[in-house]
Design a protein around this nucleic acid. Structure first.
Length: 563
RNA sequence: UGGGAGGUCGUCUAACGGUAAGACUGCAGACUCUGGAUCUGCGUAUCGGGGUUCGAAUCCCUGCCUCCCAGCCA
C-alpha cells in the first residue's frame, strides 16, 4: 500500500509513481535513463540542486543512468567558464555521470539533417519575416495568428534557402527556418515555431562552424532521443512545450522519451533568478558569485554547507506540481542536522571580554581535555590550554543579569567548559563605564568541570586562553534579503530595495583556540554555543577567516527577546 | 475574456473511494559540562457550493483563487 517517507529518497512523488508504472508495463524496456541538462550561461544554484538530485537520484534508485548534458544552443550567452563550473559543482554535490557528458552542440549535424528531412516532408519552411513581423503574425493569447506569406514555398526553394542560411549568405535575423504546424493553434508554441535562427556568433565548442543555431524546442527532445533518455524531467514552465516536444519526435519518427514536469524550487528570503543574481554581483551588492550569502551552489559551498546536507534537503522537500515557497528554515535544518552529527567542536570567542582568575597561579598552563564531538565518540578528544587570563564572550557576562540569565555576573559561579568553576568577584570599567575586564576566582577542586561536593552551576560557558589564542576574523551572515519574498518590489523600487543591510557583519577581533592553527580552507567546525563555521579561502598567512554557516538554536536569545 | 497546470496544518509534502499522516517552524516540558543535541507533549489543514456513494481530499458538476505561455532565450 502506501510507502512511508524514506530518509534517502524522501516522500513518495508522482514522478516515481510514473516510473514504477512504466517499469511494470515495460514501456521503455525496463530502462530508466534521465539527464540533467543545464544551459552553461551562469552558475548553478540551490534550485538546480533539486533537479540534479531528482534526476541522478531517480536513476540511482531504479538502477538506471543519468547523463550530464549541456544545452548549449545559444552561443551568445554561453561560456566555457560556466561549463567548467557546472561540471565541478555537480561533482561536488556527489554525482557521477560515468563519462556520459554530452553537449547539445554535439548533435548540430544530426539536427541539421533532421531539419532537412522536415523540409522535404513539407513540414518546415524558410521564413523571411523579421522578428517584429513574426511577433505580429503570431496573434495573441485570444486571437489566432496569420500564416506567413513564405509558408508555401516549394521544397526546392526551402532546401536552397536553408542551405544558404547555413552557408552564411544572410545576415542575422533576416530569415528563420520554421515548422509548419498551425497558426491558429491555441497553444502559441505550435504557431509555426522557429527551428533555426541565423546567428553569426562564435560558439564555445563549435567555434565558427555554424552561423545558424537550433532553438531549444528543436533541440531538446531530439537530444533526449539520441541519448535514449526515458524520462525527460523538466520544470513546469515547459508544460506548454510538451506538445512540440512530442510533435518533433513523432514527425521525425525517432525514439520518443517522455517529458515530465515538476515544480521549481522557491525559497523564502531568497532569489533564484539568474538575471537578478547577476545584478547583485555586477552592482557589488555581494562579493561575487560565490559570496557565502548567495544561493549559488558555489556560494553555499563556501558558506560551509555540505553536499550531504543539500542532498538530504532535496530528498525531503518533495516533488510535485504545486508552485509554493519553501521556508529557508527547512534548508538550515538540514545543514545543522548534518554538521551536528559530524562537526568538530572547538572553542572560539567572537566578541572577547578579558577574564582574570586572580587566584590562579601566574604563568601556569594546564592542558584541558575537550571532547571533539559529543555525537561521535570516535572523533576523540583534544587538549586545550588553560591559564590565568582568558577571553569569554561579552554576551556571557552581565553586570546586572536579567531574570533567567544564567551566565556570569557578579557573585555568580559558572563553569568554564572542560575546565573549572569560576566565580565573579569584581569588574574593571573604562571611562565610559563599560566593563572591560572581569575578575574571578576559581575552585581548583572542580578541575575538568565537576564539583566533588556535587554543587551545580546553571551555566557552562566557553573560553579561550588569552596567551594561547589565535586571532581570527569571523563573517556573520543574515538573510541576504529582509523581505520574505524578495521579488515583491516596493513601489518605485527594484528588488535591491529588499536587500538586508545587515546581511554581513565582519568581526575582526575573534580569539580561537590554538588547535585551529593552520586549518585548511573549507574545513568546518562547530564553535561551541555559537554555531557552525567554515574556514574561508581568504584565510592566509596566519590570519584565519571563518564564515558562519548557520547559528545554533539559541533558546536564550528567544527568552531575552520576550523580556 | 485563449490555452495549459495547480489549490491538503504557518511552510513543504503524503494519503491513489475506507482512521487526513510526516518533516520543518512555533509553543510547553524533560534531560544536559554547548540555553546545542536528544526525548516527550501540543496542530481550529482537504479553496467554496452542489452531486454520486454505506463511505469523498480522492469521482462528477459548478464557482473562486494562484502560476505559466504572445523570444529569432532556455
Amino acid at each position: 500500500m502506501s510507502e512511508s517517507a524514506n530518509p534517502l529518497t524522501g516522500p513518495s512523488n508522482f514522478i516515481r509513481d510514473i516510473i514504477k508504472e512504466d517499469l511494470k508495463t515495460g514501456k521503455f524496456g525496463g530502462r530508466v535513463h534521465t539527464r540533467f541538462p543545464p544551459e552553461p550561461n551562469g552558475y548553478l544554484h540551490i534550485g538546480h540542486a533539486k533537479s540534479i538530485c531528482l534526476n541522478f537520484g531517480l536513476a540511482a534508485e531504479f538502477g538506471g543512468q543519468c547523463n550530464l548534458r549541456f544545452d548549449d544552443t545559444n552561443p551568445e550567452k554561453e561560456e566555457q567558464e560556466y561549463v567548467d563550473s557546472i561540471i565541478d559543482t555537480v561533482h561536488w554535490l556527489g554525482f557521477d555521470w560515468e563519462g556520459r557528458l554530452y553537449y547539445a552542440s554535439d548533435y548540430f549535424d544530426q539536427l541539421y539533417e533532421w531539419a532537412i528531412r522536415l523540409i522535404k516532408a513539407g513540414k518546415a519552411y524558410v521564413c523571411d519575416l523579421s522578428a517584429e513581423e513574426v511577433r505580429r503574425y503570431r496573434g495573441t493569447l485570444t486571437e489566432p495568428g496569420i500564416e506567413s506569406p513564405y509558408r508555401n514555398r516549394s521544397v526546392e526553394q526551402n532546401l536552397n534557402l536553408f542551405e544558404r542560411m547555413r552557408a552564411g549568405e544572410f545576415p542575422d535575423g533576416s530569415r528563420t527556418l520554421r515548422t509548419k504546424i498551425d497558426m491558429a493553434a491555441r497553444n502559441l508554441n505550435l504557431r509555426d515555431p522557429v527551428m533555426y535562427r541565423i546567428l553569426h556568433a562564435s560558439h564555445h565548442r563549435t567555434g565558427d562552424k555554424w552561423c545558424i543555431y537550433p532553438m531549444y524546442d528543436f533541440t531538446h527532445g531530439q537530444s533526449d532521443s539520441i541519448e535514449r533518455i526515458t524520462h525527460s524531467i523538466c520544470t513546469l514552465e515547459f508544460e506548454d512545450h510538451r506538445p512540440l516536444y512530442d510533435w518533433y519526435c513523432e514527425n521525425l519518427g525517432i525514439y520518443h522519451p517522455q517529458q515530465i514536469e515538476f515544480d521549481r524550487l522557491n525559497l523564502s528570503y531568497t532569489l533564484l533568478s539568474k538575471r537578478k543574481l547577476l545584478k547583485l554581483v555586477q552592482d557589488g551588492h555581494v562579493r561575487g558569485w560565490d559570496d557565502p550569502r548567495m544561493p549559488t551552489l558555489s556560494g553555499i559551498r563556501r558558506r560551509g554547507y555540505t553536499p550531504e546536507a543539500i542532498r538530504n534537503f532535496c530528498a525531503n522537500i518533495g516533488v510535485s506540481k504545486t508552485n509554493g515557497t519553501l521556508e529557508l528554515a527547512m534548508l538550515e535544518h538540514f545543514v545543522r542536522e548534518d554538521l551536528n552529527r559530524r562537526g568538530q567542536r572547538v572553542m572560539a570567542v567572537l566578541r572577547p571580554l578579558r577574564v582574570v582568575i586572580d587566584n590562579y597561579p601566574n604563568g601556569e598552563v594546564e592542558e584541558m581535555e575537550a571532547v571533539n564531538n559529543p555525537e561521535d565518540s570516535s572523533m576523540g578528544t583534544r587538549k586545550v590550554p588553560f591559564s590565568r587570563v582568558l577571553y569569554i564572550e561579552q554576551e556571557d557576562f552581565r553586570e546586572e543579569p536579567p531574570k533567567q540569565y544564567y551566565r556570569l555576573s557578579p557573585g555568580r559561579e559558572v563553569r568554564l567548559r572542560y575546565a573549572y568553576f569560576i566565580k565573579c568577584t569584581s569588574v574593571v570599567k573604562n571611562e565610559k563605564g563599560e566593563v572591560v575586564e572581569v575578575h574571578c576566582t576559581y575552585d581548583s577542586a572542580t578541575r575538568g568541570g565537576n564539583a566533588p561536593d556535587g554543587r551545580k552551576v546553571k551555566s557552562t560557558i566557553h573560553w579561550v586562553s588569552a596567551a594561547h589564542a589565535i586571532e581570527a576574523e569571523a563573517r556573520l551572515y543574515e538573510n541576504l534579503f529582509s523581505k520574505e519574498n524578495p521579488n515583491d518590489e516596493p513601489q518605485g523600487n527594484d528588488f535591491t530595495a529588499n536587500l538586508n543591510p545587515n546581511s554581513l557583519e565582519v568581526l575582526t577581533n575573534c580569539k580561537v583556540e590554538p588547535s585551529l592553527a593552520g586549518a585548511a580552507p573549507l574545513t568546518r567546525f562547530q564553535f561551541e554555543r555559537l554555531g557552525y563555521f567554515c574556514v574561508d579561502p581568504d584565510s592566509g598567512s596566519g590570519k584565519l577567516v571563518f564564515n558562519q554557516t548557520a547559528r545554533l538554536r539559541d533558546t536564550w536569545a528567544k527568552i531575552e527577546k520576550r523580556l
